[in-house]
Design a binder for these strands. Structure first.
Lengths: 182, 182
DNA sequence: ACGCTTATGGCACCAAGTGTCAAGACGGTA
DNA sequence: TACCGTCTTGACACTTGGTGCCATAAGCGT
């Protein structure tokens, strides 16, 4: 049900833009009331960004599946790469969504926040790899590593989107990391 | 005038929280109409985040004042450090604002966006330092470096805020960079 | 058939923004 | 002083995202 509504909404978003699509229109198109739509998705942004938090969980799982002896950057790279294998999204669709994401201010902000949530998800594992006890106070070093890895991924993603998906995402990521750590 | 209104608004924000303060209340307290308030600040977030884009310009100027031969990371570090010398904000006030920033979702998002604008501001200079011609297509390597430096600054800032300003910000930044590039 | 829970819809409401228009304030000119 | 164009301000209406509240079903076990 949620999935179906989300599909309707995404179609409208891609057709006529995020801001130009009202919640009322989505509700009408999906055959439910506005109030019910807000029950399925608490926020308009949630419709677009909801799947991204699930993706974050997948990345975390992939990260935890890597051998504990693997250094942080390699493990993170491998975890990110597993994301690209997800057959859920076709490249064209991903590209269309990405363009909308970068072109809509409110979505861009939400997208950035997603990065923060991914960060919280991944830090504990990296903390272990650094040999730090997993206390309640997160280690700034682990946070810095995860945050910068995500930043490199974001830069790679933006470059990939800008050139209409012509380049190889993994390669762009490696270039970004090399520039930062070189 | 804008400054005065901003001061009134910031006082209310810090007293009773960002979300709990309505634009109407700010307008009333500042002795102007709600409509005029929206003319001074197009968005509620702008009241809080407006000064931050000015700070971005200051960082850019400080970066461009560094010798061209200085490597990117050192130049960025020095540029960031010049920000801490600004006597505009007392530590307590900065701490209070930071806590509000991290504690309010919508502000956190805007804060992240500020980082993107800083990135755009600083990339051209770093691009020059890397020996790349300043064309219209930004170099992904320069973007990655600037973005990660800003990310390290953000991590340092968050850690600094979390420990109530006890630690030294510059030192936290250096630790973050060391963890990432080490 | 009786209750219980849960999803749904309708309604009123709040607050952030935006467009529009009329009324003043200000400065230059005759 | 009187006149005129420009800019600022305020008032009003309106759209839209989001929330609280309550009535109404729909399902289900007894």
């Amino acid at each position: 049900m949620r999935t179906e509504i989300g599909a309707v909404a995404m179609r409208l978003f891609l057709e006529q833009g995020f801001d130009a699509t009202t919640m009322e229109q989505i509700a009408h198109e999906a055959g439910i009331s506005r109030r019910s739509l807000f029950r399925y998705f608490g926020t308009k942004e949630d419709i677009v960004l909801g799947n991204l938090v699930e993706a974050g969980l997948a990345v975390r799982d992939a990260l935890e599946a890597r051998p504990a002896s693997e250094p942080p950057w390699e493990a993170l790279r491998a975890a990110f790469e597993s994301l690209a294998l997800d057959p859920e999204y076709s490249p064209e669709r991903t590209l269309a969504i990405s363009k909308m994401l970068y072109g809509t201010p409110s979505l861009r902000a939400g997208h950035l926040e997603k990065q923060l949530r991914w960060q919280e998800l991944l830090v504990p594992n990296i903390q272990v790899r650094l040999g730090v006890a997993t206390g309640d106070a997160p280690d700034p070093r682990a946070q810095a590593i995860v945050a910068c890895a995500l930043t490199c991924l974001a830069v790679a993603n933006e470059t990939w989107t800008r050139c209409d998906g012509e380049a190889d995402l993994a390669q762009l990521f490696d270039q970004a990391v090399a520039a930062v750590r070189g």
